[in-house]
Amino acid sequence: MTKLEKQILLVSIFATTITGILVYLLREWGNVETLLGPEANPFLTHAQGLHYLFTPFFILSISLIFKQHVYEKIQSSEKRRISGFTMVSLYLMIIVSGQILLYITEVNFTYYARYAHLLLGSWFALTFLRHLVLRFS
Protein backbone atom coordinates (compact mmCIF):
# COMPACT_ATOMS: atom_id res chain seq x y z
CA MET A 1 0.00 0.00 0.00
CA THR A 2 1.12 3.56 -0.64
CA LYS A 3 2.03 6.04 2.05
CA LEU A 4 -1.17 8.00 1.37
CA GLU A 5 -3.35 4.89 1.72
CA LYS A 6 -1.65 4.09 4.97
CA GLN A 7 -2.24 7.56 6.34
CA ILE A 8 -5.91 7.53 5.31
CA LEU A 9 -6.27 4.14 7.04
CA LEU A 10 -4.70 5.28 10.29
CA VAL A 11 -6.63 8.55 10.50
CA SER A 12 -10.04 7.14 9.51
CA ILE A 13 -9.86 4.11 11.79
CA PHE A 14 -8.72 6.25 14.69
CA ALA A 15 -11.39 8.90 14.04
CA THR A 16 -14.36 6.50 13.66
CA THR A 17 -13.37 4.59 16.77
CA ILE A 18 -12.93 7.69 18.92
CA THR A 19 -16.15 9.33 17.73
CA GLY A 20 -18.06 6.05 18.06
CA ILE A 21 -16.94 5.59 21.65
CA LEU A 22 -17.72 9.23 22.32
CA VAL A 23 -21.28 8.65 21.07
CA TYR A 24 -21.61 5.72 23.44
CA LEU A 25 -20.26 7.62 26.46
CA LEU A 26 -22.40 10.70 25.86
CA ARG A 27 -25.47 8.59 25.26
CA GLU A 28 -25.13 6.37 28.31
CA TRP A 29 -23.56 8.74 30.81
CA GLY A 30 -23.98 12.23 29.44
CA ASN A 31 -27.67 12.94 30.16
CA VAL A 32 -28.49 16.32 31.62
CA GLU A 33 -31.28 16.60 34.21
CA THR A 34 -33.77 19.37 33.52
CA LEU A 35 -36.89 20.46 35.30
CA LEU A 36 -39.12 18.28 33.16
CA GLY A 37 -36.87 15.24 33.10
CA PRO A 38 -33.72 14.04 31.40
CA GLU A 39 -32.31 15.61 28.26
CA ALA A 40 -29.63 14.11 26.02
CA ASN A 41 -26.19 15.67 26.18
CA PRO A 42 -25.96 18.75 23.95
CA PHE A 43 -22.77 17.38 22.37
CA LEU A 44 -24.33 14.02 21.43
CA THR A 45 -25.63 15.33 18.11
CA HIS A 46 -22.18 16.63 17.20
CA ALA A 47 -20.49 13.39 18.18
CA GLN A 48 -22.97 11.43 16.05
CA GLY A 49 -22.44 13.86 13.17
CA LEU A 50 -18.68 13.32 13.33
CA HIS A 51 -19.10 9.55 13.51
CA TYR A 52 -21.32 9.59 10.42
CA LEU A 53 -18.80 11.87 8.73
CA PHE A 54 -15.84 9.55 9.27
CA THR A 55 -17.50 6.20 8.54
CA PRO A 56 -17.40 6.60 4.73
CA PHE A 57 -13.66 7.24 4.98
CA PHE A 58 -13.32 4.16 7.12
CA ILE A 59 -15.17 2.06 4.56
CA LEU A 60 -13.30 3.65 1.68
CA SER A 61 -9.85 3.32 3.21
CA ILE A 62 -10.21 -0.42 3.60
CA SER A 63 -11.73 -0.95 0.20
CA LEU A 64 -8.74 0.95 -1.22
CA ILE A 65 -6.30 -1.63 0.13
CA PHE A 66 -8.57 -4.60 -0.40
CA LYS A 67 -7.08 -5.87 -3.63
CA GLN A 68 -3.46 -4.95 -3.13
CA HIS A 69 -3.06 -5.65 0.53
CA VAL A 70 -5.82 -7.83 1.91
CA TYR A 71 -6.43 -10.13 -1.02
CA GLU A 72 -2.79 -10.56 -1.96
CA LYS A 73 -1.60 -11.05 1.59
CA ILE A 74 -4.19 -13.75 2.15
CA GLN A 75 -2.98 -15.46 -1.01
CA SER A 76 0.72 -15.16 -0.42
CA SER A 77 1.39 -15.07 3.29
CA GLU A 78 2.91 -18.33 4.40
CA LYS A 79 2.65 -17.73 8.16
CA ARG A 80 -0.96 -16.85 8.87
CA ARG A 81 -1.33 -14.31 11.63
CA ILE A 82 -5.10 -14.36 11.86
CA SER A 83 -5.47 -10.73 12.92
CA GLY A 84 -5.81 -9.74 9.27
CA PHE A 85 -8.64 -12.24 8.73
CA THR A 86 -10.33 -11.14 11.91
CA MET A 87 -10.29 -7.55 10.70
CA VAL A 88 -11.83 -8.41 7.37
CA SER A 89 -14.76 -10.22 8.97
CA LEU A 90 -15.18 -7.57 11.65
CA TYR A 91 -15.15 -4.90 8.94
CA LEU A 92 -18.17 -6.45 7.25
CA MET A 93 -20.05 -6.99 10.49
CA ILE A 94 -19.41 -3.41 11.63
CA ILE A 95 -20.90 -2.07 8.43
CA VAL A 96 -23.94 -4.31 8.73
CA SER A 97 -24.57 -3.46 12.38
CA GLY A 98 -24.02 0.25 11.70
CA GLN A 99 -26.58 0.16 8.91
CA ILE A 100 -28.99 -1.66 11.18
CA LEU A 101 -28.65 1.14 13.73
CA LEU A 102 -29.43 3.69 11.05
CA TYR A 103 -32.40 2.04 9.41
CA ILE A 104 -34.09 -0.44 11.70
CA THR A 105 -36.68 0.87 14.13
CA GLU A 106 -37.53 -2.31 16.03
CA VAL A 107 -36.56 -1.30 19.54
CA ASN A 108 -35.45 -4.57 21.08
CA PHE A 109 -33.47 -5.41 17.98
CA THR A 110 -31.57 -2.11 17.88
CA TYR A 111 -30.81 -2.49 21.58
CA TYR A 112 -28.71 -5.56 20.83
CA ALA A 113 -27.37 -4.14 17.56
CA ARG A 114 -26.07 -1.14 19.52
CA TYR A 115 -23.99 -3.29 21.84
CA ALA A 116 -22.88 -5.57 19.00
CA HIS A 117 -21.73 -2.54 17.02
CA LEU A 118 -19.90 -1.09 20.02
CA LEU A 119 -18.20 -4.39 20.73
CA LEU A 120 -17.27 -5.12 17.12
CA GLY A 121 -15.95 -1.58 16.67
CA SER A 122 -13.71 -1.71 19.74
CA TRP A 123 -12.60 -5.22 18.83
CA PHE A 124 -11.67 -3.99 15.36
CA ALA A 125 -9.62 -1.10 16.77
CA LEU A 126 -7.71 -3.41 19.13
CA THR A 127 -7.11 -5.98 16.40
CA PHE A 128 -5.80 -3.24 14.15
CA LEU A 129 -3.30 -2.22 16.84
CA ARG A 130 -2.27 -5.83 17.17
CA HIS A 131 -1.91 -6.10 13.39
CA LEU A 132 0.43 -3.12 13.40
CA VAL A 133 2.50 -4.44 16.29
CA LEU A 134 2.80 -7.98 14.90
CA ARG A 135 4.17 -6.50 11.70
CA PHE A 136 7.50 -5.93 13.42
CA SER A 137 7.81 -9.27 15.09
Binding site: L36, G37, P38, E39, A40, L44, T45, Q48
Partner: peptide, 11 residues
Amino acid sequence: YILSDRVRSHY
Protein backbone atom coordinates in the same frame (compact mmCIF):
# COMPACT_ATOMS: atom_id res chain seq x y z
CA TYR B 1 -47.79 11.65 35.27
CA ILE B 2 -44.85 13.57 33.86
CA LEU B 3 -42.80 10.98 31.96
CA SER B 4 -39.73 11.19 29.73
CA ASP B 5 -38.52 8.66 27.21
CA ARG B 6 -35.73 8.45 24.64
CA VAL B 7 -37.17 8.51 21.13
CA ARG B 8 -33.96 7.76 19.28
CA SER B 9 -31.16 9.85 20.73
CA HIS B 10 -33.14 12.63 22.37
CA TYR B 11 -36.04 12.64 24.77
